[in-house]
């Protein structure tokens, strides 16, 4: 019946993975603003119209 032990370990580690994902998402501030992300995704990215557009925003900013 050692297969049960294996299954147990597998199921708990999958659940633990989800727990870790949950804690990460809270810490990351994904629930801080519930309005902006939903709106932001609808904006179309226009092709670069001016020189200013070529600047790539720094993505590594943590609030």
């Amino acid at each position: 019946m050692s297969v049960i032990i294996l299954l147990l370990i597998a199921s708990i580690s999958v659940a633990a993975l989800f727990l870790a994902a949950f804690i990460w998402s809270v810490r990351n501030g994904q629930y801080d603003d519930e309005v902006a992300p939903a709106v932001r995704i609808l904006f179309d990215d226009k092709p670069a119209a001016s020189a200013a557009d070529t600047i790539v925003p720094d993505k590594n900013i943590q609030p």
Binding site: D32, D33, E34, V35, A36, V39, A49, S50, A51, A52, D53, I55, P57, D58, K59, I61, P63
Partner: peptide, 21 residues
């Protein structure tokens, strides 16, 4: 904002708190 002023690298709005980083 970066399209208006090249000096601004990025800006992010928190809509609920009415704040901009």
């Amino acid at each position: 904002l970066h399209r208006l002023d090249a000096g601004v690298l990025s800006s992010k709005v928190n809509f609920i708190r009415k704040e901009t980083d």
